[in-house]
């Protein structure tokens, strides 16, 4: 059975390994230049950073759509499941082996890419943050978990939908819905947050406490010297009235006025040190979701498909 699973994954494996090798070569070759570049000139590499990051965000969706979705949908569409499931191998083993081979490939591809990319972008991350929503999903081990989840999602959707193209589209869409829905609703609560205070974000956000710069700010509120919360809409009015400021006043003038009144921001945030705990919880959650989908897939194949 393993031979058949490999044989059917051969084309995908070839594409995946070549693509991974190319990306790995690019990352390794360019990393030296980045490491040697002074901080001020790092922005010349932002295009590459963004491009590679986007590829890494899209990769799990592609694995789900191109490997997961056709796994059963294509068999059911072409009728070849009637050939495969009447050989001397149970459907459970057939599905287990085929999913196993693709999962192994997905782990290798995403782990190589994500590890190299995390290393490659270290020079950027030391000056900004990698725990924030923009970067978190492109670093560490989370991409591997996303890929496994997407693969399971694709397999399940393909089993239920039974048509390759719709299954691919639904898989990619559903993956992003879950991925960003999770980021919005669940990830903030995965580890404990801390409260940090910093200067008012009047013109450029994040000024003030350096600890807040590397952290992932989940929410913020403006507080006056007595600890009372000021509605965000009335901050400008309060400052203008207290210090006779106008629209043409400088940022410094605003900040000095805020300082005099004791106005500052209190933010709820995940500090940079929680990057790895968050990564691990997020990865466990997506692997768990993937396992649930795999179980559903096994059940469906056993009882609802012919």
């Amino acid at each position: 059975m393993t031979w058949l699973a490999w044989r059917q994954a051969r084309a995908q494996a070839l594409v995946a390994i070549v693509a991974t090798a190319v990306i790995a070569a690019v990352l390794v070759a360019t990393r030296r230049h980045i490491a040697a570049t002074p901080e001020a000139d790092l922005s010349t590499f932002y295009k590459q950073l963004q491009l590679l990051g986007t590829v890494l965000i899209g990769l799990p969706a592609a694995i789900g759509a191109f490997w997961g979705a056709p796994l059963l949908a294509r068999e059911l569409e072409m009728g070849t499941h009637r050939l495969a499931w009447t050989q001397g191998v149970t459907r459970r083993r057939w599905l287990g082996t085929r999913l196993g081979v693709l999962a192994l490939l997905a782990v290798v591809v995403t782990a190589v890419f994500a590890t190299l990319f995390t290393w490659w972008s270290l020079p950027f991350d030391t000056h900004s943050n990698r725990i924030g929503t923009a970067n978190f999903g492109q670093r560490g081990v989370a991409p591997v978990a996303y890929a496994l989840f997407a693969l399971a999602l694709g397999a399940f959707v393909g089993t239920v939908v039974r048509r390759t193209l719709p299954a691919m589209a639904i898989t990619a869409f559903a993956f992003f819905v879950v991925r960003y829905g999770f980021q919005l609703a669940v990830r903030p609560g995965l580890t404990d947050t801390v409260e940090l205070s910093r200067g008012l974000a009047l013109f450029s956000p994040g000024a003030g406490d350096p600890a807040a710069a590397g952290a992932w700010v989940v929410s913020s509120k403006t507080v006056d010297g007595n600890g009372r919360v000021i509605p965000s809409g009335s901050v400008d009015r309060i400052l203008a009235e207290a210090c006779n400021l106008t629209r043409t006043s400088t940022e410094d003038a605003f900040q000095q006025c805020a300082h005099r009144l004791g106005l500052h921001e209190v933010v709820t945030a995940h500090p940079a040190t929680q990057f790895w705990p968050l990564q691990i919880w997020e990865s466990l959650a997506f692997c768990g979701l993937g396992l649930v989908l795999v179980a559903a897939c096994f059940w469906w194949v056993r009882h609802r498909t012919s």
């Binding site: 059917q8 072409m78 009728g79 070849t80 009637r82 050939l83 499931w85 009447t86 050989q87 001397g88 191998v89 149970t90 459907r91 083993r93």
Partner: peptide, 20 residues
Amino acid sequence: GSDATQLAKVGFVAQDAPVY
């Protein structure tokens, strides 16, 4: 179809003879 032994005892060619 209960287990591998049972599956191995039955040869099946579906309608339109699906192959890969």
